[in-house]
């Protein structure tokens, strides 16, 4: 016999289901009046430092169908690469946004500031990126991924360097479509399946 390891076990995930909006984005469900406003409407407030960028995209299932019932959350650093809540972080950047795929088109839009590169404790730097978390009916545990930017130097990013099949790196890189505008499509399966993360 040995001593027991006295750790608890994480609670199992269950799908967010088709009605996730009731709890998370009530106005999307047609449910008004319980809260003054939905949580996480914008990751930035007036006065946020840095370049404003707008990222549009969709979450595609294995058929390539843009899902109409996905909900996404984003988390990011400010323009200097500081996470909200850490010393010196931009007080106008909450860093958190919650948004839904459009119920008619499946398109989502995230308007935010371009994040800065984030330092790791060992001194390496992660290229500017936005963390994403995706839930929906049929997704049994939230999917983690990241949005990187086509016009940044991503060559030394430690996470992207871990991707063995180099063409897959492209699935994490938002494509520039105009000044301050990017496109980021998420594919759950099939050609160009997005790299999902476990970290």
């Amino acid at each position: 016999m040995v001593q027991p390891i006295d750790l608890l076990v994480e609670t199992a995930s269950q799908t967010a289901g088709p009605y996730v909006h009731i709890g998370c984005i009530p106005s999307f469900a047609g449910l008004a009046g319980v809260y003054p406003e939905d949580l996480g409407l914008s990751p930035i407030a007036e006065g946020a430092q840095g370049e404003i960028v707008t990222i549009t995209g969709a979450v595609h299932d294995g058929m390539g169908w843009a899902m109409r019932d996905a909900m996404l959350e984003s988390w990011q650093a400010d323009a200097q690469g500081r996470y909200p809540g850490t010393p010196g972080a931009d007080p106008h950047v909450s860093g958190f946004c919650r948004f839904a795929a459009d119920k008619d088109t499946g398109e989502f839009t995230l308007r935010t500031v371009r994040p800065g590169a984030v330092a790791l404790p060992d001194g390496r730097r992660m290229a500017p990126h936005i963390s994403l978390w995706i839930v929906a009916r049929g997704i049994n545990i939230g999917l983690q991924t990241r949005i990187y930017f086509e016009d940044e130097d991503n060559s030394a990013d430690p996470l992207l360097a871990r991707i063995e099949q180099r063409p897959r790196v492209e699935t994490l890189i938002a494509k520039k479509t105009g000044e301050g505008r990017f496109r980021f499509d998420i594919r759950l399966q099939g050609a160009g399946e997005t790299v999902f993360l476990d970290l």
Binding site: S131, T194, L197
Partner: peptide, 23 residues
């Protein structure tokens, strides 16, 4: 779930400040 489950393995890595901080 059949058409919405990733088929490639997840990319596993040690957590970074992007996962260790939060709203």
């Amino acid at each position: 779930s059949v058409s919405r489950a990733p088929t490639w393995p997840l990319l596993s890595m040690e957590s970074t400040p992007s996962e260790e901080t939060g709203p």
